[in-house]
Write a protein that binds this DNA or RNA. Structure first.
Lengths: 145, 145
DNA sequence: AATATTTAAGAGTATTTTGTCTTTTATAAA
DNA sequence: TTTATAAAAGACAAAATACTCTTAAATATT
């Protein structure tokens, strides 16, 4: 098992790369990013397309085209990114996978799991992409294997 | 995305079912369980086989055969079960999927994620299957859709 | 206008996970 | 000892996820 999908990992890595190179300011070339991060170009393109469709990134085609932030990384929360990459119901899912699990018809782990899940949710909601990106830049942390 | 795999969900549901019907005491028939929980019989069999191989369950073949707990549910932690069902490294994985991520060569999210991960880990380590099973029995909570 | 560049989109392939079916092995009961 | 029952094991099929390749559309430069 993995906590997030491969696409999610790739997406987060690309976003962190962008956020930690914001002096670059404008648009990032996807081909270059794919090489720097060692992620398949076409696959990364698709993942970033989704983020563009969800209004997190904007893109331009043609020479010097690329992808850039639509909102400032200060205003982008980790929670928002995980939902965009892993599905809107990420923080609502039943641990046992039971559909319709909730207050009205809880599974045996509902209350327990909801506590844990909500902690994670609020943690992710109060962490911005800028926070993580600054960290990356200042400490020269790696985004590749 | 899902937090645990489908096999993991099925395994937990079966174990909760067993733990909450402990008056039954002895062995549980897998066919019956698969019907009560609406899980494919053969698939469930394989999942329980793994739990048997990992020393959490024991099994007997033949008439009145089945699977039962090897240790008492009081002594089985949720942490142990998740590791058995999702892999031993469940609580050690890098959120970005980077191999070898750790103190020596951390990814930008390492410290942050380690905090969250360790919380989850200790939460799961201090929760027994018996706790969850008792809950299920006393409150008549559902394990099926 | 023509060409080159770069993302978008879609079709197709590979791998992993999930699920099914069949055969084997162990055990109990007649 | 034969038969029935139930888990173990393995081969196979289907679905989901991950990845590749080709074509289309947009934009900039000449």
């Amino acid at each position: 098992m993995r906590v997030i999908s491969k696409s999610g990992e790739y997406g987060l890595r690309a976003l962190l790369h962008m956020a930690s190179n914001q002096e670059n300011e404008g648009f990032f070339n996807i081909r270059e990013m794919s090489e720097e991060l060692d992620i398949s170009f076409h696959f990364l393109t698709k993942i970033l397309q989704v983020l563009t469709q969800k209004g997190i990134l904007q893109s331009y085609r043609g020479p010097n085209g690329g992808v850039g932030f639509l909102k400032s990384p200060e205003e982008i929360t980790l929670s928002e990114l995980v939902r965009a990459l892993e599905g809107d119901d990420f923080f609502d899912k039943c641990l046992l996978g039971l559909p319709g699990c909730g207050e009205r018809q809880p599974c045996p782990m509902h209350a327990y799991w909801m506590g844990i899940r909500n902690n994670l949710k609020s943690e992710f909601e109060t962490t911005s992409l800028a926070d993580l990106g600054k960290n990356t830049r200042l400490q020269h942390l790696r985004l590749i294997a």
